[in-house]
Design a protein around this nucleic acid. Structure first.
Length: 469
DNA sequence: CTATGGCACGGATT
DNA sequence: AATCCGTGCCATAG
């Protein structure tokens, strides 16, 4: 009677810890895979059926209360509401995507464009709208523009035009902003609208885009100035703004300065692991943070299996017992993971509230180390939790969770703003000076780096961007 | 001579 | 322990 069997009882804490760590670092998608494989390989695990909130019909991980509906109606908490939310699974079948899309000849992307967009907007769609959305998304050209007229779409799918338009609106606001527009003009207008929510947009920009595209692209700025009776300077400014911030082909990287090695910021399509939105879309209400769970039920140890183990004969018992252990460990780890994520998000979202609402300029330089101290967990825990996760902000933009910890993002956006505002070109050392006045101490060399990151040209190249011929 | 980009080093972060 | 980021120094371009 050696302790051969005893090995099934492992040092729970270490294993527990290790697995939790692994789970923490997983994306929602990866987590799903993990759960699936565990679920299928281990008979002791079971998933109880999905539950929905009686009031709002939202899927729940736990029975009963829906965190949103159970909220007092008029809370004005600074603290965000954080909860786990199962993702409504909506992966478009490949056959939605017919001949149009050849399977990624070059694929740094995680998924193709239609899927990517669909995932973002799925929560906003009524089930019956999804097919329509999928239809629209599969009729995009490589620039992200619609190849079919809305009219035809409506006729073909038997939806009302107004309905089609509604869905298109939703699509346009998704990440490659403007995707799914009928024309480049439309795409630009949508982008303008979105930009206007967070930053400042030259007033004439909209009208220019709406009516003056032809002149714009031919650089007939003086004509435009005359036509709308505004100073040429304004036009130049607007043109520059448009060239730098808008993209007529949403699915492509950039436009305008074709000769610039603008190393496009991670064009990687990511689907969010965390959704942040306003309660009822009202900016005055508290933020709602949903941590996406890729499953729609509750994972638990199958009680039947437990019972079976007890009755099992002695020779099979150890094996079964091991499964049981594993299953319960897995469940524990999963809970641990979610708990950690929850605490992390509460903290981080609470701190970066301004960033989330008002934009990059208001980000507070927080390091992972700080958070880890506050949460009393190891730094590496936070690191793992933060890595490889994407967050969808209320404005539908998707950013990596790690951006919440970017030490220099606020300085960079300040810098960006200075340069955009003052149309007279500042040299790097000038910029150091100005930034200093605004409370940002940075070295000259650093400014140069920031410019590079933001894809801003050096001063002497910048000044003549809008030269009329 | 001034403004920038390159290389590399040290300290902070992960 | 490995990596990232801010900086200083130097070479180069205008």
């Amino acid at each position: 009677m050696f302790q051969v069997q005893h090995q099934s009882i492992r040092p729970l804490t270490t294993a527990h810890l290790a697995q939790t760590m692994t789970l923490l670092s997983l994306t929602a998608d990866e987590l799903k895979q993990e759960i699936d494989s565990e679920l299928s390989s281990n008979p002791a695990l079971e998933m109880v059926e999905e539950r929905r909130c009686p009031t709002c019909h939202r899927l729940l991980t736990e029975p009963g209360k829906c965190p949103i509906c159970s909220l007092p109606t008029n809370i004005e908490s600074e603290e965000p509401v954080v909860f786990l939310s199962p993702r409504e699974e909506f992966i478009p079948q490949k056959d939605y995507i017919d001949t149009e899309i050849d399977d990624e000849p070059f694929a740094p992307a995680t998924e193709d464009l239609p899927t990517y967009v669909l995932r973002q907007i799925a929560p906003d769609l009524k089930p019956e709208q999804r097919g329509l959305a999928a239809f629209l998304l599969t009729h995009l050209d490589e620039d992200g523009l619609l190849t079919t007229s809305l009219m035809d779409v409506a006729r073909y799918t038997h939806f009302m035009i107004s309905e089609v338009e509604k869905v298109q609106k939703i699509i346009q606001l998704a990440d490659p902003i403007g995707v799914g527009s009928c024309t480049t003009t439309d795409a630009l207008l949508v982008q303008l609208q979105v930009l206007a929510e967070t930053g400042e947009v030259p007033e004439i920009a909209e009208i220019l885009v709406r009516e003056g595209m032809g002149e714009l692209s031919h650089h007939q700025y003086s004509d435009l100035a005359h036509k709308y009776n505004v100073p040429l300077r304004k036009i130049n400014e607007a043109a520059k703004f448009i060239a730098e911030n808008l993209n007529p082909f949403p699915a492509r990287s950039h436009w305008g300065d074709t000769r610039q090695p603008v190393v496009e910021q991670t064009q990687v399509y990511h689907q969010p692991d965390i959704l942040i939105s306003y309660l009822n879309d009202d900016p005055n209400r508290p933020l709602v943070v949903e941590i996406i769970m890729p499953i729609s039920g509750t994972l638990q140890v199958n009680p039947l299996f437990k019972q079976a183990v007890r009755q099992a004969s002695d020779d099979t018992k150890p094996d079964l017992k091991q499964d049981l252990e594993k299953a319960s460990l897995f469940v524990k780890c999963l809970q641990q993971r979610n708990h950690t994520m929850e605490r992390l998000l509460i903290r981080v979202v609470g701190m970066q509230r301004d960033y989330i609402i008002k934009g990059e300029k208001f980000i507070k330089p927080v390091t992972r180390a700080q958070i880890s101290r506050e949460l009393e967990v190891h730094e590496s825990t936070i690191s793992r939790a933060v890595a490889n996760k994407a967050v969808q902000l209320p404005n539908k933009r998707i950013v990596p969770l790690s951006s919440f910890f970017d030490r220099s993002l606020n300085v960079r956006s300040e810098l960006k703003e200075i340069i955009e505002k003052e149309s007279k070109p500042y040299s790097d050392s000038d910029l150091v000076e100005i930034l200093g006045q605004r409370g940002y101490e940075v070295a000259r060399r650093t400014v140069a780096k920031y410019r590079a990151i933001e894809g801003i040209l050096p001063a002497h190249l910048r000044k003549v961007t809008t030269k009329a011929t």
